[in-house]
Amino acid sequence: METLAIYASRLVTERDYFASGHRACSGCGEALALRYVCKALGRNTIISNATGCMEIVSSPLPETSWEVPWIHTLFENASAVASGIESGIKALKRKHGYTKEVKVVAMGGDGGTADIGLQSLSGALERGHDFIYVCFDNEAYMNTGIQRSSETPFGASTTTAPAGKFSMGQHTQKKNMPAIAAAHNIRYVATSCSSYPFDIMNKIEKAKQIKGPSYIHILSVCPTGWRTASNLTITMGRLAVETGIFPMYEIEDGKYTLNFDYPKLRPVEDYLKVQGRFRHLTKENTAEIQEHVLTEFNRIRLLAGKKIK
């Protein structure tokens, strides 16, 4: 079975709804994640996209990379626009006998989700609109030149939280966005990573089946902002999961499932030392990060009903 598994890529549909010729950086993990998301969503989809990397690279007017209906919104109202579209479709069904099943999807980067778009996202989740929110988390405002966001991890050096004599970069912990989404008591919340294509596609499939809001948080490797080589994009995502820095889990109707658990997590150093944005960290910083990662990972393990190792 294991030897057959390497041929699994051949089972994925060749049809892309995110066309080539987009202007993402070479080796972009976010464009990669978006490709998988669009493959899984299929053609009966309407996408409302907050400003961010994926909006800028895909829509250099008069061109577009999208092969599904797509609307560009501001940072703060991707979920509000998605709510409106979903309500509009409902009204069409009620008044004009429209029967097609269309999934409405809102997308944003970590800035458009956790910072600027949080209020409209919270409103849409609370009102219970039938839509999927996908957050592509590359851990800073990469599009405008690597400014810190609330999703930037502890210790990362960015242009607005630079490491130097008096600072070790970002001094706050990453905002726990999936937990905020889960606190709205929605039926499906999941985290995923750009290096795990089948995981992303399965989770999008699941979210598609759910009536009501669902939230998917995808860690998207950014070679430009993380200061890694562009051919290491997949490796970096795998390291983030294998070190426990980014736990991959699902919350279905309040029930936690940990998708990737390891008998022994890799030391965080493996992940940190490859990236330019963590190059300045001292041994003490690394130890602090390691401790925080273990605490957080064990918290998820407990929630998922597993024993702490």
Binding site: I6, S9, A19, G21, P60, E63, T64, W66
Partner: peptide, 29 residues
């Protein structure tokens, strides 16, 4: 839809991939 296909991003690269078909197992990764 998808008219960025007209825009070649190919001239951004300084290296390009070359396949060795003898080693290829056609897995599609």
């Amino acid at each position: 839809p998808g008219n960025t296909k007209r825009f070649g991003t190919g001239d951004w690269k300084s290296q390009h991939p070359v396949w060795d078909d003898k080693k290829c197992i056609k897995c599609g990764i």
